[in-house]
Design a binder for these strands. Sequence first.
DNA 1: TATGAATGAGCATTCATTCAT
DNA 2: AATGAATGAATGCTCATTCAT
Lengths: 206, 206, 206, 206
Amino acid sequence: MSPKVPDIYKQHKKIEILQAAEQVFIRKGFGRVTMKDIVEQCQISRGGVYLYFSSTDEIFQAILDWKNGQPQQELLLIYESANNGEEALTQFIILISTYMKETANSLYRAHVEFFSALAQDDNRWQFVQQRHELLVNNYAFFFQEGTRLGYFSPQTDLRILTKFVLTWCEGFSLNTMILPMDDLQADTQIELLHQYLRQMLRIPSF
Amino acid sequence: MSPKVPDIYKQHKKIEILQAAEQVFIRKGFGRVTMKDIVEQCQISRGGVYLYFSSTDEIFQAILDWKNGQPQQELLLIYESANNGEEALTQFIILISTYMKETANSLYRAHVEFFSALAQDDNRWQFVQQRHELLVNNYAFFFQEGTRLGYFSPQTDLRILTKFVLTWCEGFSLNTMILPMDDLQADTQIELLHQYLRQMLRIPSF
Amino acid sequence: MSPKVPDIYKQHKKIEILQAAEQVFIRKGFGRVTMKDIVEQCQISRGGVYLYFSSTDEIFQAILDWKNGQPQQELLLIYESANNGEEALTQFIILISTYMKETANSLYRAHVEFFSALAQDDNRWQFVQQRHELLVNNYAFFFQEGTRLGYFSPQTDLRILTKFVLTWCEGFSLNTMILPMDDLQADTQIELLHQYLRQMLRIPSF
Amino acid sequence: MSPKVPDIYKQHKKIEILQAAEQVFIRKGFGRVTMKDIVEQCQISRGGVYLYFSSTDEIFQAILDWKNGQPQQELLLIYESANNGEEALTQFIILISTYMKETANSLYRAHVEFFSALAQDDNRWQFVQQRHELLVNNYAFFFQEGTRLGYFSPQTDLRILTKFVLTWCEGFSLNTMILPMDDLQADTQIELLHQYLRQMLRIPSF
DNA sequence: TATGAATGAGCATTCATTCAT
DNA sequence: AATGAATGAATGCTCATTCAT
């Protein structure tokens, strides 16, 4: 009756499956992925996968949870190398533009498909919303920390500014999926964002 | 020799199907829609629908084409009622915020799902890209017209500004699908956009 | 009540359909032919064809009947140019080898498919058998006529010899469909048949 | 790691399906057979059959392959009981006439339909041709063996004679499908073949 | 725990046939 | 007589899910 196999083993097996499944989702998006795809990538039997997860939905969500457990530390590392607001902001811009440009070959495609396919009565909206909340907190903290360090003198509420920026980033990521970089004029757009933030954060000249 | 039933009839029938299908796509998104759903909504027989369209993909694309055939005239109507740049911009903001807030219950969800599910070797990317191009042209024309009328004195390239704004709008629409308006702080974000545009278009004070 | 359109018109229309359908059957064989194929080839409406025939089966059979109405006169024409048994037999061999080699691109393929697909309880076996009977009669008559003319001195019953020859021809036609002429060694085989007949008909030397 | 269910099991299951399918093909010919028919005859689920074969075509071809794997040994067994050419030839005639008379209730019908329905661009012609080649080799070997044993003194190339005989047999099999034995005068025709072979093989009188 | 053969519900698609015009 | 849009039964095929081993 008592579990013979310790939870740690189960956890390990689960992660093994998630890693394999992630590759599938990156490759095929969300909706076209079948259990067969995942099973084949895992090198585990059909029934085996079902012992741990009972649908592609569940697996995908588990991947997102798992990834959330590895929060972006990179943002705050900026302050270890930047000596002033200008430098910090520049590094910030470089960082997020790197993220955004990767979307075409990342889990992002599947992610967008996943929640745009969510039925309105689905009970996973909460999950999606919490994820978004975490993201906002993470980014807002970057600006707050910059302000605390005297790098930024924001002329507006930082949380709302963060949301504004993330909204733009969301759109940019989406467009990255659709358009060639040229059509998007990616770098010029990013430069506009850079200017905007420089101004909104009223970075002291020096 | 001449067709008893003119092409206009076929066109009408097609549109009948598209209208029904649109309801289905709004309700269920893109990927979960089956021909059966559409057939049932149409009140036409299985074979009847196949007479006009041969897949959900084709129907969805036809809906987008059909909608594209009714381009947004509203943007340019603004200049018929607005007396100065400030008024024009305000009306512009109101208009797009209306559009964006509607996304949750519109075809937008299905649209996002449609292209995020597009396989990389799909030959419909071109279609999606052309659609985007049209949108950019449409919006850019609004700003150009405002400039020609002396309402705006843009301090930056209008086309790139348009893209920047549309990028943000894309993100906003997406977030509208995910988040309750409150979490999104929709109006406050829109206000930020308003300020940004007011400044970038250097609307002359009066 | 009385027919406004004379039968002659109906006949003409029927033959129009049969001619078109024959092309389809030659191109596609029997089983893969749909009413749509025939309708498209005819340039007549779907319903129009149904006024005259109600299935592909019926059409195919009508084609065979129609063709049967044009019996092979060529066999007997041989006696108008041949001056002796040897010449008659040679012309006979040339004639049938021509027929048989044509099978790949003729109605023969469809014909074989048609009756091999005939269900055992089908009431069209009789039709097929009558057709075969006609064929035997036609060929037997050639040999009888040759005998009457003193060209042949058959050492066996002519009717059974005819059947034997036709059996071989049937197999040869079939193989023509399957094999390249080279593999079949067509001409060498035909030469064997020639020799066999020369002997069985005991063509007087001269 | 090692498969719990060995390949032998899969092979067995395949053969189970083929046996059931063969009954269906014998009963219905080739073209009218649906997967549903085969599924029902197998007493296996729809998906179950698809696990092993993905179309009726594939199944039919597998049946032919499987049958080919059991080559006709009977021909050569003749030489174990026959004491001279006359006896060998007589047994040969009896054997093939038995084969040919069975065609009406055998797979032959389906076989004829199968290849007469083959589209010209089909890649299975090769398969059909190889099958024919095998058949020729098999029969030719019989005559060669008889010659080696001194039973036959052929006055013509044995391979071409084999082809000639097989051509006739093909036609006879076909006619067996179409005609009642009486109309065909089967035994009399076979007697003609017997005489012909006796002569061509110049069986030494004794 | 783990396996993978088997299941069968469910959707896509075709096509002979009808019928209002 | 002729049309061709419309029908819906029938089939092919896939895939999530189960279960005996």
